[in-house]
């Protein structure tokens, strides 16, 4: 993956957002990072991108539990939005939930690349980016 990718981080935990920003900095990359506190904000941004012809994010880190619109609802609506898109985003579910129910549910969404349990550090992010390059 090129080192200047569009990446969405959708999580209502501001500390997690801070940590993730720092993680990318520590990887010394020049990615464009977009932070959203809930699914609805992120979805609006994607709608805008489609409308104005801006390319979709290549990578999305998606939390499950968020106010207003949670991760599952976001996925359901996104599926409809990008159904016809050629370059679909790589989506990673990132949650502190170790509940089996969430893990099983994530298997039902074909769009989800993987389900990652927090904490997620710079090294983990590097691994993901490398695997995407392959």
């Amino acid at each position: 993956m090129k080192d200047k990718a569009r990446i969405y981080i959708i999580d209502d935990d501001e500390i997690f957002q801070f940590i993730t920003r720092k993680s990318f900095e520590r990887l010394d990359r020049k990615d464009e990072l977009f932070f959203f506190l809930n699914g609805e904000d992120a979805l609006r941004s994607i709608k805008d991108s489609i409308a104005s012809g801006i390319e979709l994010p290549e990578l999305i880190f998606l939390d499950i539990n968020m106010p207003i619109m949670d991760g599952w609802d976001f996925l359901t609506e996104l599926q409809v939005l990008i159904d016809s898109a050629v370059n679909k985003p790589n989506i990673y579910m990132v949650s502190s939930s170790i509940d089996d129910k969430d893990l099983i549910k994530s298997k039902k969404y074909s769009m989800i690349k993987d389900y990652i349990v927090k904490p997620i550090k710079d090294v983990h992010i590097k691994e993901i980016l490398t695997s995407l390059e392959a």
Binding site: D13, I15, F16, I19, K22, R26, N65, S96, S97, I98, D99, K118, P119, I120, K121
Partner: peptide
């Protein structure tokens, strides 16, 4: 309650561990 411990306690603790590491 299980949900709370899973989410509401795990989250800050995992944040703590990374912050300390960084």
């Amino acid at each position: 309650f299980a949900h709370i411990t899973s989410h509401n306690l795990r989250s800050p603790i995992s944040n703590l561990s990374i912050l300390l590491d960084y």
